[in-house]
Simulated assay, not measured.
Amino acid sequence: MRKITIKVLTKLPTKNVTNGLILILILFLYGIIGSHIIMGYNLIDSIYYSIITLATVGYGDLAPTTGLQKIFAISLALGGVATVAYVFNIILANFQERMSEYSKGVRKLKTITNMDGYYVLCGYGRVGKVVFQELKQRNQNVIIIEKDKEKCEDVEENESVVVINEDATEGDLITKLAGDKCQSVIISTGSDVTNLFIVLTIRETNPDAWIVSRCSKSENMSRLKRAGANKVVSPEVIGGKDLYFQSAKPHTLRVTVRHNTDEIYDEFKIISKHGCTLETIDYHLPGIETPLSRRINTKDLEDGKRYTEHLNAHPEQKEALDNLYKSVNNVHSHVISGPDMRTLDELMKDLEKQGEVIGKNLSNKEISEITRKELEI
Rank of each mutant, 00 (worst) to 15 (best):
N16C: 03
A73Y: 10
G338Q: 10
E156S: 10
T308M: 09
T205R: 09
G20T: 06
Y48N: 08
L311M: 14
P64R: 10
Y41C: 06
R107I: 12
C122D: 06
A229D: 02
N139K: 13
F132I: 04
I91S: 02
R214G: 10
L43T: 14
H259F: 14
I4S: 09
I74P: 00
A227F: 03
T201R: 13
P286N: 08
S222N: 09
T66I: 03
K360L: 08
R372L: 13
T189P: 06
D282F: 04
F28I: 05
D322T: 15
T371N: 10
I91Q: 00
I211E: 01
E369H: 12
T18W: 02
S218D: 15
G359Y: 05
E101R: 11
I4P: 02
R295E: 12
D180N: 11
V8A: 08
L173P: 02
D350S: 05
T308A: 06
I336S: 10
L321Y: 14
I288F: 09
G79F: 03
N165Q: 06
E376C: 04
L362R: 03
G105S: 10
P207E: 08
I4M: 12
V127N: 09
Q317V: 04
T83D: 03
T194W: 00
E236K: 14
G40F: 05
A168C: 13
N330T: 01
G240A: 09
P235A: 05
N361A: 05
T56A: 14
Q137R: 15
L196C: 06
Y265F: 15
T5M: 14
Y49C: 03
N206F: 00
H332M: 03
V127W: 03
V87Q: 03
K241E: 13
S337P: 00
G40D: 08
V232H: 00
I370Q: 05
E374T: 08
S293Y: 00
I202E: 02
T201E: 12
C122L: 11
V120C: 07
I358L: 15
E376Y: 11
I164Y: 04
I4F: 08
T83E: 04
N260F: 01
V162T: 15
K373I: 05
D192R: 04
A248P: 01
L76H: 11
V142E: 07
A248D: 08
S293N: 11
N195I: 07
L321N: 08
I296P: 10
K326Q: 14
Y49L: 10
R223P: 00
N19D: 05
T256S: 09
D340G: 05
K249H: 14
L121M: 07
D154S: 13
F95S: 11
C182H: 03
E366M: 07
